[in-house]
């Protein structure tokens, strides 16, 4: 059984050595994961966070960029830990969208 992250040796295309400049929100999710996790509050382990990402449905997983995957995995893990609910996140997103 191959989880969606276990891709060593699978056929794939050329490597693009260029990258994009990391966006502020991408740095922010990196910081949130680190702060909630092993670097600071230790509410989660790095292992739980990896596992939460890998638990995503494969088709969905494959459609996400690296940091989108982090965001989705993190929300699921926080819900699992009883810290917040996805519905709260979605409600807050709607509020932020309409905030002047």
């Amino acid at each position: 059984m191959r989880r969606p992250n276990d891709i060593g040796g699978m056929p794939a295309g050329p490597v693009n050595p260029a990258g994009h400049e990391i966006e502020p929100w991408e740095r922010l999710i990196t910081a949130l994961v680190s702060t909630v996790g092993p670097a600071a509050k230790k509410i989660t382990t790095i292992d739980e966070f990896r596992r939460a990402r890998e638990d995503l449905d494969k088709e969905f997983y494959d459609s996400l960029t690296y940091f989108e995957l982090w965001a989705e995995g993190f929300v699921n893990l926080m819900e699992e830990k009883g810290v917040l609910k996805r519905s709260e996140v979605e409600a807050r997103m709607a509020a932020l969208r309409s905030r002047p």
Binding site: M1, R2, R3, G8
Partner: peptide, 13 residues
């Protein structure tokens, strides 16, 4: 082995 769940042994190995 091929157990479900989080493993850190890649399938190729």
């Amino acid at each position: 082995h091929n157990p479900p769940g989080h493993r850190r042994v890649p399938v190729y190995a």
